[in-house]
Amino acid sequence: MADFTPEELRAKILEYLETKDKAKNRDIATAIGVSKREVDKMVNEMAKEGILEFLYLGTSYVKLKDK
């Protein structure tokens, strides 16, 4: 598992989502090599800050806001 600072993790998530319309947290975690729990926490934080938004299509997807 990769070891990122919160700022690095945030940047990695943003970088990954730039390449996708929407993604599941598990896919983000696999792509950047961290645990899903870490991604869950950071994604929730970023959603509360209005950077990301959730899409609920049977399960939860996340996307860049206004992308």
């Binding site: 599941k24 869950d40 609920y56 049977g58 399960t59 939860s60």
Partner: peptide
Amino acid sequence: QDELHRPM
């Protein structure tokens, strides 16, 4: 609340 309202 996050765990309750967001199916993950």
